[in-house]
């Protein structure tokens, strides 16, 4: 590892957004004074035992390129791996949440083992996100575009969507409402921010939860809501007396899903065009419509049977 560090003042003046070198681990601790000297994703090139490449020779230039491409592929793979782990842990949380049962009043009952499984999942997700914040994190504080993202956003999107699905399902089961994007973002930012006495938001980076990922995560949530309400569709009884033909949480879920549909139907998606981020929408939307009808049909069945019995 023999590359030379350049003094900051050597940055040529034609270059407004100066490039400054730093490693991921210095980010958040050491802040370069000038706001524009922002470093995002940088990585020490793999040495491969070479001497400092001299970019003024063809060989040196390609040695530099090799380091640069290797670093790129390393980061890419690291992010993909972390993304896969986040997906996995999120699936475990969702599985734990699906095993939640309703008590005799139709209230959601979280057992200690379910809670501990959920916490385990979050711990893993937190660790994984922390491990890649240096690579894919962005700083929100410079008045930049809110949809700012890193080169590797595509590699982490799947994991983020699954994570949104898990947190939103948990929030819904605990509080009966859909979590907001801001809450999810704050949670992630809290997780990945560096330890120490309250650093200012401008001093650390966070992993962006894009609107696209959030909404796609909510689409996935509707599938879980469907699963949960179908498997809990039985009359709530207290001392053999039917209190409620169906648990109120199921009706609530149906209402939420209908609210989703109202919102989705209002979206003008004709401009989606070739946007990669939004391509999945049409697909997930169809799945969602099917879930909604399944719940509606399930509730219909319950009431049909009640009519039959009376």
């Amino acid at each position: 590892m023999t590359l030379a560090k350049s003094p900051k003042n050597e940055v040529p003046n034609y270059q407004p957004a100066a490039v400054v070198t730093a490693t991921a681990d210095t980010i958040g601790q050491k802040r370069v004074a000038e706001a524009h000297e922002e470093v995002a994703c940088s990585k020490q090139a793999r040495g491969h035992g070479m001497n400092a490449p001299r970019i003024d020779s063809i060989e040196g230039l390609f040695q530099y390129c090799r380091g640069s491409l290797d670093a790129h592929h390393d980061i890419r793979e690291k992010v993909i791996k972390a993304g896969r782990d986040v997906t996995n842990a999120s699936k475990k949380i969702i599985f734990a949440l699906q095993s939640v049962r309703l008590d005799s009043q139709g209230k959601v009952l979280f057992t200690a083992s379910i809670n501990s499984n959920i916490d385990k999942g979050y711990t893993i997700i937190q660790e994984k996100l922390q491990s890649i914040v240096g690579e894919i994190g962005v700083n929100f504080s410079h008045g930049v575009h809110p949809q700012k993202r890193s080169k590797y956003q595509h590699q982490i999107s799947g994991g983020i969507q699954e994570f949104v699905e898990a947190v939103s399902l948990e929030c819904y089961l605990r509080e009966g409402r859909i979590i907001t994007l801001r809450e999810v973002q704050n949670r992630v930012s809290e997780w990945v921010k560096p330890k120490g006495d309250n650093p200012h938001p401008s001093e650390y980076k966070t992993i962006p939860i894009t609107i696209e990922d959030f909404i796609l995560g909510l689409f996935d949530l509707t599938g879980e809501l469907m699963r949960f309400s179908i498997s809990n569709l039985k009359p709530v009884t207290a001392s053999k007396e039917v209190v409620d033909p169906i648990p109120s949480i199921c009706t609530n879920m149906l209402n939420v899903m209908r609210e989703f549909k109202t919102q989705f139907d209002q979206l003008n998606l004709t401009e989606l065009g070739r946007n990669q981020d939004l391509k999945e929408f049409a697909k997930k939307r169809a799945v969602f419509e099917a879930s909604l009808q399944k719940v509606e049909f399930g509730i219909y069945g319950v009431f049909m049977r009640i009519n039959e019995m009376t």
Binding site: A4, E10, V19, T21, K43, A52
Partner: peptide, 20 residues
């Protein structure tokens, strides 16, 4: 940095990519 004079023991990093 490489067109200037440098010694081999100087530490440096390759900036691959700059999210910001």
């Amino acid at each position: 940095q490489y067109t200037g004079s440098h010694t081999d023991d100087q530490e440096s990093k390759v900036v691959y990519d700059l999210n910001d």
